[in-house]
Structures are given as C-alpha cells and as structure tokens.
C-alpha cells in the first residue's frame, strides 16, 4: 500500500474529527424524476425531437424495412462508401449492415489490437472515416440525449471521431430523462451495468464550443452532425 494513501486518509479522518465547520445537510430532498415521466410515449418522442433539433441535431422516423435503403442513400449523397459501425447485434435494425454491404459500403468496426503497431495503424484508418453508425442504450426526452454504452461490437469512436453520427433506436429506448432511466431502466441502467463497461456517454447534439468570443461553433472535435433515427 503506498504510504501517501494512509497518510492522506489519516489527515482526512483527523480533520473530520475536529472539523465542525460543515453545516448539517437539509432533510427534504426533491423527487429525482421529472413530471415528463408521466407523459405518454408520443409526447416523449416529440419532446426528444424538439430538444435535439434545437441543438442542431436531426431527427427522423422510419419504418424498419426502409432504414437500410435510407441510410445507403444518405451515404451516397455524402459520397461516403465506408462507415465505422457497431456490429449488427448491437443495432436495432435487423440486417442493416448487410443492406449497406450489398450497396457497396465498407463496414468497419472490428476490435483494435491492444498492442502496437497494430493499434495505431488501425486507428489511423478509423480516423479517416466520415460516418459512424450506432444503436443506443436509451434516449432521454427531457434533454434530447442519446445514451451509448461501450461493449462487444460497440466501438466508442463510431460516435466520436466521425463527422456524422447516425444513431438508431426504437420506442423501447425512450425514457423521460436520465433520472427516469436510472429509476426504471432495470439492470441495464444499474450501477453494476455502468461499472461493467469502460464507458457510457450521454450525447446531446453535435460537438460544440463557444470558447472564442462566446460565439457558438458546431463540430469542434466530435461530430458536426448527429442524426437520431426512430425505427418503427
């Protein structure tokens, strides 16, 4: 055990023993879940769409059968023939990646080697890919947020190093808020699930900055474009 650990903890215990300078906590605490949790599914979806669009994201509803061709068309319009994608089992649209492959799109997303030189070489390739395709773990109506967890076949960079991030979800993924998900999302939203993956990211709209003169600029280091697709 490193000496500083015990030294520091000892100092803290000493401080807490002598320190009466902290006021007691107030007793009454508000409910963590907002009123939106009681709203019906349709109004939650519409709130999600409004929030996301306000921040410069896009929202789209598509029947499952059309998702593949719609996506392929989007890629074609952008002149993109390679995507960084989550693996098929992690996507809520069956056959989506095959539909892309059939149209000549190269799908990338296999695991990075842990060691060099393989790791950097593959990253250098990923860095050039313009579009990322992901599913979600949940979406939050109150803020227009997408919750994405790392896991098998779920590269983190698919929602990060690309210029356009397309996320597919179904009505089952919609929660009023993060608080509602924590309260009602079951095992998937639990602390154990969180700690079991290296990363859970809440994504709300495109990457942005206001660091120069407080002028809002979209697309700094992360995607300029976030497209959320509700598959019905």
């Amino acid at each position: 055990m490193p000496p500083s650990r015990n030294f520091i903890l000892g100092k803290i215990r000493q401080a807490l023993k002598t320190g009466s300078h902290l006021a007691p906590s107030p007793a009454v605490l508000p409910d963590a879940v907002s009123g939106l949790a009681q709203a019906d599914a349709a109004s939650q979806v519409s709130r999600f769409a409004t929030e996301l669009q306000t921040l410069g994201g896009s929202f789209q509803t598509l029947p499952q059968a059309q998702a593949g061709s719609w996506l392929a068309q989007c890629l074609q319009q952008r002149g993109v023939n390679e995507v960084l994608a989550w693996e098929q089992p992690a996507l809520p649209v069956p056959g989506l990646l095959d539909a892309l492959r059939e149209r000549g799109v190269k799908v990338v997303g296999e695991a990075l080697p842990a060691a060099e030189p393989g790791r950097s070489a593959m990253l250098a390739h990923w860095e050039t890919i313009k579009v990322g395709i992901t599913g979600v773990d949940a979406v939050f109506a109150e803020t227009g947020s997408l919750a994405l967890r790392a896991g098998p076949g779920r590269p983190r960079l698919a929602s990060l190093s690309v210029e356009t991030h397309v996320a597919f979800f179904t009505a089952d993924h919609v929660y009023a808020s993060w608080a509602a998900w924590l309260a009602r999302g079951g095992a998937a939203a639990s602390g154990e699930a969180l700690a079991a993956a290296s990363n859970l990211t809440l994504i709300t709209g495109p990457s942005r900055t206001a660091d120069i003169e407080m002028t809002l600029t979209v697309g700094v280091h992360g995607p300029r474009e976030v497209v959320a697709v509700l598959v019905t």
Binding site: L55, G151, R156, L194, S198, L200, I203, G205
Partner: peptide, 20 residues
Amino acid sequence: KITSYVSLLSGPRRAFEPDG
C-alpha cells in the same frame, strides 16, 4: 440543460470492447 457530452468512464477498455 446538459452538455454535448457526459462521459462516464468506468475503468480501461475491457477485453470484449473494440476500443478505448
């Protein structure tokens, strides 16, 4: 209301994860 990104990091890349 919320920032563009809230990253919740719990440990390094796991063996079953493709990146990190």
